[in-house]
Computed example of a mutant assay.
Amino acid sequence: MHFTTRRCLSLRHVFYLYTFLLFICALIFLSTSLANQDGWNLFSLFQGYELTQAEIESGTGQLAQDDARLMRHISEKYLIPPSPKGVQAGVDWTPVHLTNKFEQQEVSRFIIDLFKNKNGGTFIECGANDGEFFSNTMLLEEKYGWTGLLVESDPRPLKKLMIRNRAAWIAECCLSTGSQPQKMEFLRHDRDEGLSFIPGKRHFIGNEADYYSFDAQCFPLYSILSAINMTTVDFFSIDIEGAELDVLKTIPWDKVLIKKKMGLRL
């Protein structure tokens, strides 16, 4: 009797062990089959837990660029929707930098010719400043009904950008130079409206004492685009004082279609 009981227990243990091994083999097979998917690994099956703001923004959470938690965080904390009044209504088109009017008109004319007066296109402008100062997209929006994404992390021009009421998404952040979110230090010229940069990415113009530093939260461009569901872009203008190539390297080009790119300091 005791022998029969012990034998049944032993067979039951073998069955449990066999079932457990089958489960592990299935997980390994699934991990191998899906290994080519961005950000997927064996442990991603258990990654439904929430992360703190610090874990997300520091990159220690090691999230895929299109992870739902990262996109939700960007949407809730750093994105301002386009003007609800429509593409052109309610936007302040009043020029505030008249001394640069002619120079910027030449750039705008080149861009318009590049797209052959295309209507209703989409753009990204990184280094958007106040939305008008040397803007490469404002005329596309005003005259041809374009919309898109404006990225600006400097608090001073950002305030002016927000009240301009552009018909485009505004991202209150900078673009990561790696595949994870990160905090970065910037230097800002005390008087020059268009000059802020990452230390070491470009030289000082004028007196170094005229610059002050500020910290900005950065996210991968693809994460921001995924958050607003915009992965096809007609025109990408990137002017971030020497960090352009680092940002371009973070983009998964198999998932984003950018038809034309223009960088001023590549």
Rank of each mutant, 00 (worst) to 15 (best):
N129T: 10
F134D: 06
Q104C: 04
T122I: 02
E103K: 09
I112E: 03
V91R: 09
F134S: 04
E103D: 08
G120T: 04
N100W: 05
A128V: 02
T99E: 10
D113Q: 11
Q104E: 05
F102S: 06
F133Y: 15
T122N: 11
V96W: 06
V96F: 08
T99H: 04
F115C: 02
F134E: 02
E106P: 00
R109F: 05
G127F: 12
K101C: 01
G131Q: 14
E132G: 10
I112M: 05
S108I: 01
T122K: 08
F123P: 05
E125K: 14
V91T: 15
G127N: 09
T122H: 14
G120P: 03
G120D: 15
D130T: 13
K118P: 00
D113V: 07
E103P: 00
E103V: 03
V91E: 07
L114F: 01
W93R: 04
F102W: 09
D130P: 11
V96N: 11
N117S: 14
F102P: 00
E106Y: 07
D113T: 02
V91W: 12
E106S: 01
V91N: 12
H97V: 03
I112N: 02
F134P: 00
L98K: 01
D92L: 11
N117R: 14
N136M: 07
L114C: 11
F110I: 01
Q104K: 07
K116C: 02
G131T: 13
N117Y: 07
W93C: 09
Q105I: 00
V96C: 04
N100K: 02
F134Q: 10
Q104P: 00
N119F: 11
E132M: 05
N117G: 02
V96K: 15
N119P: 00
S108V: 01
S135G: 06
N117M: 11
L114Y: 04
N129R: 03
G120A: 04
D113K: 13
P95I: 13
N136H: 15
K116L: 06
I111D: 01
L98V: 12
T94V: 15
